[in-house]
Simulated scan of single mutants.
Amino acid sequence: MKRWLGSAGICFNERNELLMVKAHGSGEWSVPSGGIEEGESPEECCIREVKEETGYDVRIIEQLLVKETSIKGIEVKTYYFRIDTFGTSTGIQDPDGIIGATAWKSLPEVKTMSHAYPEDLDFLLEQFNYK
């Protein structure tokens, strides 16, 4: 069985909006995330992926969740971290060229938007209460 390990960042701004990204040509949003590279910790992966996908430098506050699931026959393990941005975004620098947009989304928007990972919706909505 193939395995994939990744990290995702949960980040809110001062207006209690969640940092989200979407792929080119997609209407589905998700929090910034990506695969852990060889020799990288989940924390390092999170910091790198958020920088690549949103242009923000971030610091880890705490680990929130480890999601283990199976997607199309691949065992998937994703580490979710609460993070904080510092400085301003330098723009999307995604080496894979997947990310088409990044935006801060309010609670009503997150409730009604189309999600790339709909199974994460309840978890994401809970995070609005912990700001």
Rank of each mutant, 00 (worst) to 15 (best):
E62R: 15
D122I: 11
E43Y: 02
F81Y: 10
V66Y: 06
R3A: 14
L121D: 11
E43H: 01
H24Q: 07
Q93S: 12
K22T: 04
W29N: 09
V76N: 07
N129K: 15
E53M: 07
K2F: 13
G35V: 04
F81V: 05
G27A: 10
E52L: 11
V76P: 03
R48W: 10
G87N: 05
F12A: 06
C46S: 08
E62H: 04
E119D: 15
M1C: 13
W4S: 12
P118L: 06
G27R: 12
E44C: 00
G35F: 03
S26L: 02
Q93V: 02
E52K: 09
P32T: 12
E44G: 14
E53K: 07
D120S: 15
G6V: 07
E17A: 06
E17F: 05
E37M: 12
W4E: 10
K51S: 03
K105Q: 14
D96I: 04
K22I: 01
I71P: 01
L65Y: 09
R3V: 14
G34S: 05
S26T: 03
K51M: 02
L18G: 00
T88E: 15
E62W: 03
T102S: 13
I92H: 03
L5E: 09
F12I: 06
I60T: 11
R59Y: 14
I98M: 04
G100K: 07
G97S: 08
L19Y: 03
G91R: 01
G87D: 08
I83P: 00
S89I: 03
L121F: 00
C45T: 03
Y56K: 01
P42A: 05
I98R: 08
E68G: 07
N13L: 00
L65I: 05
R48A: 09
S26N: 05
I60M: 11
A103F: 12
K77W: 00
I92G: 01
E40P: 04
P32S: 13
H24I: 11
I10T: 04
A23P: 00
D94K: 08
V58M: 03
T88L: 14
I60V: 13
S106G: 07
I74N: 07
G97N: 10
R15L: 12
Q93R: 13
W104Q: 08
V50H: 02
S41G: 11
G27L: 10
E37Y: 13
G35N: 02
K67R: 15
R15Y: 13
R48S: 09
P95W: 02
K105C: 11
V31Y: 04
G9C: 09
G25H: 05
A116M: 15
Q127M: 13
A103P: 08
L124D: 02
D96Y: 14
E109V: 02
N129S: 15
P42R: 00
G97V: 05
E119Y: 13
E17R: 12
F12L: 08
H24E: 08
D96K: 13
T85M: 05
C11L: 06
G35M: 03
S33H: 09
K51R: 09
K22E: 02
V58S: 03
T102D: 03
T69R: 12
